[in-house]
Amino acid sequence: MSDTAGFINMEQVSVGYGSSTVVSDMSFRVRRGEIVALIGENGSGKSTLLKSITKEIPLLGGSIRIDGRDISRLSAHDIARIMAIVMTGAVRTDYFTCYDTVASGRYPYTGRLGKLREEDRQKIDEAMRLTGTVELADRYITDISDGQRQLVMLARAIAQEPMLLILDEPTNFLDIRHKMLFANTVKELALSKNVTVLMSIHELELVRDMADRVIALKDGKIDSDGPVKDILTDEYVKQLFRLGIYPR
């Protein structure tokens, strides 16, 4: 790591759509291997912030450096070798197996026609082992449960060999068992492969279970930032999510 300050360095980042700014003047740093949860109400800027890191939407101001490199200067191919994503949305392609889905994570490493080499197959098998999805390999992605599907999408992200894993509300709609399986796999990944995890998430129980640190967002700004036990107090959660205050 060329920048000792952090693996991810966000400096005065502003992001938005067109002329409207959703996230403004935001700065924070994340260490390598750290699991950071972004929490906040819907519309607080969590997903927008993550989209700016994946370069899905351009910055309106500021800079983002990952592993010492300014991401605005990195190609899509370079970005793909640094970070992988898991989101809520489902893959809807018919006759597309879980193995095919995980194999798509090898895209940055395969040749012109995307033919898998022995090394790619090993990485795919390893990712499926780590997520407990080996038995789903030949099943179609449209024929499995939401929970199984998200584990397959996590395997796809792991097969991409990222240094940074971006999770955008990945456990929405999952049952408790699959939420826990997902969380445990992410924790193991961060620990064993030193992968940094930045996630937007609503389930505070999962945040307590898997995150090292919480960044709470409110109206596109950082409201608080610190270790999970310091931030997620009952009182602060009530205040952040305005619990007990319902507009008529």
């Binding site: 989101m87 893959v91 095919d100 798509s104 895209y107």
Partner: peptide, 15 residues
């Protein structure tokens, strides 16, 4: 092959 997983996932692998 990557696009069949959806536009955002395809973008994330470098398409």
């Amino acid at each position: 092959g990557a696009y069949l997983t959806g536009e955002e996932y395809a973008r994330s692998v470098g398409v």
